[in-house]
């Protein structure tokens, strides 16, 4: 364990320090958005958005390498793909509610397929596995600033509209009757979710996004009794999971995404057991 921390100080470990910093900063957005996703019960929408990210990444890489459009980076493609998927699902669920789960399924599969087709036609090496299971090596120094920006973009509306978000999450029908702009708040939540998911895709990968979105919030939900305190605890839990997972993956030479998720799931199960024992005593 000691050599682990000694290693971290080495110059060639810059990527690891960078990943840990992004994990620390990103946990703020991930914990806050994850709590809203879990309490609103829209995890499947988050899953669909995550898979649509691959479509955006594939299209961006193709345009970059085949058409020579340099500014079309995979990160930009991922963000556009995610936001497009979020708005599509959101608008369909608002204007044709009964079709929501079908649209989620379609976006989920279509995003993945489009991504695979683009990647197939893209010349050169593409770290496909990195997108599926996460690859901290895909992150670099500028991404630290993007993560900070994401935190600001998530936190400012959450703090400003907290009471509206709380009312809409608890009982959107009642909030609408009181004149709250429920649809706008819902779309805002989906866009924030989409942007957060893009970051998560780089940390844990498309397939494991749902786990990192739900497990910290669900763990926090075992202890917190208010929405804001659930968010705070979820941020702390998320940071602990990501940091211990990244260090563990380096130490045991394992892929980072699965290690993060296994640790998170383990802690969640312990929290559940603790909670049920406490309830029985009460």
């Amino acid at each position: 364990m000691i050599e682990l921390f000694r290693d971290l100080a080495l110059p060639e470990m810059g990527f690891m320090r960078c990943a840990l910093l992004i994990g620390l900063l990103g946990s703020v957005a991930m914990g806050v958005v994850g709590t809203m996703v879990v309490t609103r019960r829209i995890t499947s929408i988050a899953g669909a958005i995550a898979h649509a990210v691959l479509g955006g990444v594939g299209a961006a890489l193709y345009l970059q390498r085949v058409n020579g459009i340099d500014w079309c980076s995979p990160l930009l493609g991922a963000a556009l793909g995610a936001v497009a998927a979020a708005l599509l699902i959101g608008l369909v669920s608002i204007y044709a509610r009964e079709r929501e789960d079908t649209v989620i399924g379609v976006v989920w599969a279509l995003g993945m397929s489009v991504g695979l087709l683009f990647l197939d036609k893209t010349p050169g090496y593409v770290d496909f596995q990195g997108y599926l299971f996460g690859n901290i090596l895909l992150l670099s120094r500028p991404d630290v600033y993007l993560t900070l920006l994401l935190d600001v973009v998530v936190l400012v509306p959450t703090v400003l509209f907290f009471n509206n978000l709380l009312a809409v999450s608890f009982d959107s029908c009642f909030a609408e009757l009181r004149g709250v702009r429920v649809k706008l708040i819902y779309l805002l939540l989906l866009v924030l979710t989409a942007l957060t998911i893009v970051l998560m895709v780089y940390v844990v990968g498309i397939i494991l996004v749902i786990a990192l979105l739900t497990l910290p919030a669900a763990t926090a939900g075992c202890f917190a009794r208010r929405l804001w305190s659930t968010m705070v605890l979820a941020v702390i839990a998320c940071w602990l999971f990501v940091t211990s997972g990244l260090l563990g993956s380096y130490y045991w030479k394992l892929p980072s995404g699965p290690v993060i998720v296994v640790i998170a799931a383990f802690v969640y199960i312990i929290a559940l057991i603790f909670n049920s024992v406490r309830r029985k005593r009460a």
């Binding site: 309490t39 019960r41 400003l160 509209f161 907290f162 009471n163 509206n164 709380l166 009312a167 999450s169 608890f170 009982d171 009642f174 909030a175 009181r178 004149g179 709250v180 702009r181 939900g221 917190a224 009794r225 208010r226 929405l227 305190s229 659930t230």
Partner: peptide, 24 residues
């Protein structure tokens, strides 16, 4: 309603005072 939602009684009742144009 979601019976497990993390919210206090006071926070629930305050929602009755929400109005159009309510800002935070």
């Amino acid at each position: 309603l979601d019976a497990a939602f993390p919210i206090s009684v006071n926070e629930v009742v305050l929602q009755g005072t929400l109005r159009r144009g309510f800002w935070g």
